[in-house]
């Protein structure tokens, strides 16, 4: 077993996903299959091999410290599922 139901539940919580009992079953089986498959990477010796983060070796992509136009407030709020014209409104953070 590469991953148990409990672990899947923990990961789901980390990712803020709620899985029904059925989904948990299915996902656990599927994730287990997939993780078992990706374990084949262990066949390769990667000692001393650089991890690749970017496809090429560019660096120093900078911009100057200049102020540019912001969005008008109504545009910034326009897609908000719940907003009061000034701010986004969410259930209270305890």
């Amino acid at each position: 077993m590469k991953i148990t139901k409990e672990e899947v539940e923990k990961v789901a919580h980390l990712a803020r996903l709620h899985l029904s009992a059925e989904e948990l079953e299915t996902m656990t089986t599927q994730l287990d299959t997939i993780l078992s498959y990706v374990a084949k990477l262990d066949e390769l010796d990667t000692t001393g091999v650089q991890a690749m983060t970017h496809a090429f070796s560019e660096s120093n992509a900078f911009r100057e410290d200049k102020v540019t136009d912001s969005l008008a407030r109504e545009d910034a709020l326009a897609n908000g599922p719940c907003q009061n014209g000034e701010a986004f409104v969410v259930p209270r953070v305890i």
Partner: peptide, 30 residues
Amino acid sequence: GCSTKFGAPPNSHTCPVCLGLPGSLPVLNK
């Protein structure tokens, strides 16, 4: 490039990048 000035009306110094809108990308201030 949004302004960092303190005390502006809420949500008036935002843009797709700092709002984290889908498709936006960061560029570092030198």
